[in-house]
């Protein structure tokens, strides 16, 4: 009579232990998947906060730019007015122009600085280079956050979450086959056990592989 070997005689116990192990691994995989999803949501939120901050810097720079542009325009117009008075024949007008040049224009120029004071912003036709001034303002901002960095990190976590979910499905499938092996007939249970174990090992390798790949990608 053929004696059953050690494995077949204890098959049901070994399989039950494996089912418990797969269940625990699945639970861990689902937990990790949710954690990664939560990290992705955090990065999304951080990116949106950065976007609001960055936009508020831009808004303030635009406000300042057009405030300076308005003052500079008023200064330039007053300067043209003074030049016209100076060019006139009337002595009274020239006196008015002299006083305006001495007392009014410097104050208006101060209001319009740096556009009206820094020569690098003056164009050949007497107008001011607003684009250059805006570029300088943007460069002066010390801690302008870039939301796309946080969005890229969020996308990376989302991608990892997707692949981890696939791993969880693999683990659930292995659970299916191992359960079949537990309740199935003698003839097929070894095959079912082998498929279940194979899918489980593949699922675990998948899970670890995804973690390692994304660890290096970030």
């Amino acid at each position: 009579m053929k004696k059953p070997n050690w494995f077949t005689s204890r098959f049901e116990v070994i399989n039950a232990i494996l089912i418990a192990l797969v269940s625990l691994t699945t639970a861990f995989s689902v937990w990790r998947t949710n954690m990664v999803g939560s990290l992705a949501a955090d990065e999304n939120r951080a990116g949106l906060i950065d976007a609001v901050k960055s936009q508020s810097y831009d808004n303030e720079n635009y406000r300042k730019l057009y405030q300076e542009a308005g003052f500079s325009y008023q200064f330039a117009v007053k300067e043209a007015e003074v030049q016209a008075l100076e060019a006139g024949d009337s002595l009274e007008a020239r006196d008015r122009a002299a006083n305006m040049r001495q007392y009014l224009l410097p104050n208006m120029q101060l209001l319009a600085q740096p556009l009206a004071t820094d020569e690098k912003y003056r164009k050949a036709d007497g107008t001011f280079d607003l684009q250059k001034r805006f570029a300088d303002m943007q460069n002066e901002v010390q801690d302008d956050p870039d939301p796309t960095l946080a969005f890229a990190r969020a996308d990376s976590y989302f991608s990892e979450q997707r692949w981890l979910v696939v791993g969880s499905v693999l683990l659930a499938i292995s659970l299916f086959w191992l359960t079949l092996a537990e309740i199935g007939n003698e003839r097929l249970r070894m095959l079912e056990f082998a498929i279940g174990l194979g899918v489980y090992l593949f699922g675990v390798a998948w899970f670890l592989g995804v973690e390692i790949v994304f660890l290096f990608l970030r």
Binding site: S168, V169, A172, I173, L175, F176, T179, L180
Partner: peptide, 8 residues
């Protein structure tokens, strides 16, 4: 168990 897999 099939339902479990479907749920996954």
């Amino acid at each position: 168990v099939l339902t479990t897999v479907l749920a996954a």
